[in-house]
């Protein structure tokens, strides 16, 4: 009996941990070494809202939309902090060079952070951290919410970027909050923090793709504090990403 109970508890423990994870979607080709990473863009994208179940999700989304400016304010305020946090963590395993933006230098505030408009009524901009280049083009609303981010990053954009800076690789980091589902009548919903890392070679070919997710948290959606708590799990996510990237780099 005790054995069964222990096994059950172990199963619960393991499944609860399994929800925080870093997935390697594209593995670094064998024989390709990376001794330095060149960070081209660090981005915070719009919150991804749940679609199903239709009515329940709509009610839950409404609560988040009412607070969209506060959520975006929180993200923008933390932009420099989380960028520095992840970069510092990754620098423990590989040197990272942050590139002075070519795109930004044409503007009045060289190398400052900036926002780019996207087709999203409630979360209308994406935030680029300081020293980022404007490399992502979201042409449709679906692209913003879908998981196919590489489609929004064109090969020619990356090629031009690597040529301009004369760098062998280019790393793009995209972060967002995502609602996975909502309960009956939108009383609560599961939200998590997501980080996507894409590392391209000089020719714009994808070398590494990592997806990092925190454990989904059940929130009511009407208090900013709940969303803040999820957002502040970035530290944990950065640590997990570092470990996974280290595994990939050691293998090669």
């Amino acid at each position: 009996m005790v054995k069964y109970l222990l096994s059950f508890l172990c199963l619960i423990y393991l499944t609860s941990c399994a929800t925080s994870k870093v997935k390697v979607v594209k593995q670094l080709p064998i024989g390709v070494g990376l001794d330095t990473l060149y960070q081209s863009a660090f981005i915070i994208g719009p919150l991804k809202q749940a679609v199903f179940p239709l009515l329940d999700a709509a009610i839950f989304n409404q609560k988040l939309q009412m607070r969209s400016d506060e959520i975006m304010n929180l993200q923008q305020e933390d932009l420099a902090y989380i960028e520095n946090l992840l970069r510092t963590k990754l620098q423990e395993i590989v040197p990272i060079v942050r590139l002075r933006s070519q795109f930004n230098s044409k503007n009045t505030h060289p190398s400052a952070s900036f926002q780019v408009k996207v087709d999203n009524q409630h979360f209308p901009v994406i935030f680029y951290a300081k020293d980022s280049d404007h490399l992502i083009n979201f042409s449709t609303r679906n692209e913003i919410s879908s998981m196919s981010l590489p489609d929004s990053i064109s090969q020619s954009n990356i090629q031009n970027h690597t040529l301009d800076h004369d760098i062998p690789t280019s790393m793009i980091i995209y972060n967002r909050l995502a609602v996975l589902n909502s309960s009956v009548l939108g009383i609560s919903g599961n939200m998590r923090l997501e980080t996507y890392i894409f590392i391209y070679d000089r020719n714009g070919r994808l070398l590494i793709e990592l997806h990092g997710f925190t454990k989904p948290e059940l929130i009511k959606g009407n208090r900013l504090k709940e969303i803040e708590n999820i957002w502040h799990q970035y530290d944990l996510l950065a640590e997990m990403i570092k470990e996974k990237l280290q595994e990939i780099l050691i293998k090669n």
Binding site: Q65, S68, F114, Q115, K117, D119, P124, V125
Partner: peptide
């Protein structure tokens, strides 16, 4: 009963 809101980031660049 539900109001719609829109947020305008004044210095946002075109995508």
């Amino acid at each position: 009963k539900f109001r719609k809101f829109a947020t305008f980031y004044l210095h946002a660049l075109d995508g």
